[in-house]
Amino acid sequence: MSNDPKESLPTAELIRQMSEQVSRLVRDELQLAKLELTEKGRNAGIGAGLFGGAGVVALFGGGSLVAAVILLLAQVMPAWVAAVVVGVVLLVLAAILGFFGKRRVSEAAPPTPERTIASVKHDIDAVRERAHR
């Protein structure tokens, strides 16, 4: 006979202990997943904040470059004309970008996965055809 106390336990008790251990393992794994996701979410939030900050700084940098172009043009024309010229150029560029952006968004609409739907319908038809044979 062995000295292992588990060998003398009834099967029902062993199953109960196994159930408790599996339950504890699942709870521990869920807690670990929760902690990991919390940490990843915090890092993603910090990263998004830094990315947003970079965008704000880039916007100020772009504004400074626009001001520099206006000041450069002001050397050969009145400052208000230079500002109007730069403003018109920027508005035309914005209109062109907006046009192409709208066209791309229109191409993406509606947001249904049409190829996947067609593929699933094809698969269903194939299954039905085989089921009738």
Score class of each variant (00 low, 15 high):
residue 49 G to Q: 05
residue 45 G to H: 12
residue 59 L to P: 00
residue 50 L to N: 01
residue 56 V to P: 02
residue 68 A to C: 06
residue 55 G to M: 07
residue 75 Q to S: 13
residue 77 M to V: 12
residue 48 A to F: 04
residue 79 A to Q: 13
residue 50 L to I: 01
residue 45 G to P: 00
residue 77 M to D: 06
residue 76 V to E: 15
residue 67 A to N: 12
residue 55 G to P: 01
residue 64 S to K: 14
residue 64 S to R: 11
residue 73 L to N: 08
residue 60 F to Y: 08
residue 45 G to A: 14
residue 67 A to G: 08
residue 63 G to Y: 05
residue 63 G to R: 09
residue 76 V to S: 13
residue 81 V to I: 11
residue 71 L to W: 07
residue 76 V to I: 14
residue 71 L to K: 13
residue 58 A to D: 09
residue 44 A to R: 02
residue 56 V to Y: 12
residue 66 V to P: 00
residue 63 G to N: 09
residue 64 S to L: 15
residue 81 V to N: 07
residue 72 L to H: 14
residue 46 I to Q: 09
residue 81 V to L: 05
residue 73 L to I: 04
residue 67 A to H: 09
residue 58 A to G: 09
residue 63 G to S: 04
residue 53 G to A: 12
residue 48 A to H: 06
residue 51 F to M: 04
residue 77 M to W: 08
residue 56 V to D: 00
residue 82 A to F: 02
residue 75 Q to M: 14
residue 51 F to S: 08
residue 43 N to V: 14
residue 76 V to M: 13
residue 58 A to K: 07
residue 80 W to P: 05
residue 50 L to E: 01
residue 53 G to E: 02
residue 64 S to N: 14
residue 58 A to P: 05
residue 55 G to Q: 10
residue 62 G to E: 05
residue 78 P to Y: 11
residue 46 I to D: 06
residue 55 G to I: 05
residue 68 A to P: 01
residue 80 W to M: 08
residue 60 F to E: 01
residue 70 I to V: 15
residue 50 L to S: 01
residue 59 L to K: 11
residue 70 I to R: 01
residue 49 G to I: 13
residue 74 A to Q: 03
residue 74 A to S: 11
residue 55 G to F: 04
residue 60 F to G: 02
residue 68 A to K: 15
residue 77 M to K: 08
residue 44 A to I: 10
residue 79 A to N: 09
residue 77 M to I: 09
residue 54 A to G: 03
residue 69 V to T: 15
residue 54 A to S: 10
residue 52 G to A: 06
residue 71 L to S: 06
residue 47 G to A: 15
residue 71 L to E: 05
residue 44 A to L: 12
residue 72 L to S: 13
residue 61 G to H: 06
residue 76 V to P: 03
residue 50 L to Y: 00
residue 56 V to I: 15
residue 60 F to R: 09
residue 67 A to E: 10
residue 71 L to V: 00
residue 73 L to Q: 09
residue 43 N to S: 11
residue 53 G to N: 07
residue 43 N to Y: 06
residue 63 G to D: 02
residue 43 N to D: 13
residue 59 L to H: 12
residue 68 A to S: 11
residue 60 F to M: 10
residue 51 F to N: 07
residue 67 A to Y: 15
residue 62 G to I: 10
residue 51 F to V: 01
residue 68 A to N: 14
residue 72 L to A: 12
residue 52 G to M: 04
residue 79 A to T: 15
residue 50 L to V: 08
residue 52 G to S: 03
residue 69 V to G: 03
residue 53 G to K: 10
residue 48 A to N: 02
residue 75 Q to W: 13
residue 59 L to G: 09
residue 76 V to N: 14
residue 69 V to I: 14
residue 49 G to R: 08
residue 43 N to T: 10
residue 76 V to L: 11
residue 59 L to C: 08
residue 74 A to R: 08
residue 46 I to K: 13
residue 57 V to I: 14
residue 57 V to Y: 07
residue 80 W to A: 08
residue 47 G to N: 13
residue 74 A to I: 03
residue 75 Q to L: 15
residue 42 R to F: 04
residue 70 I to A: 01
residue 51 F to E: 05
residue 70 I to E: 03
residue 66 V to H: 00
residue 58 A to F: 10
residue 44 A to S: 10
residue 66 V to Q: 05
residue 73 L to G: 08
residue 78 P to T: 13
residue 48 A to M: 14
residue 53 G to F: 05
residue 55 G to H: 02
residue 62 G to D: 03
residue 52 G to W: 00
residue 54 A to W: 04
residue 44 A to W: 00
residue 79 A to G: 06
residue 72 L to N: 14
residue 63 G to F: 09
residue 57 V to C: 04
residue 82 A to W: 04
residue 73 L to Y: 10
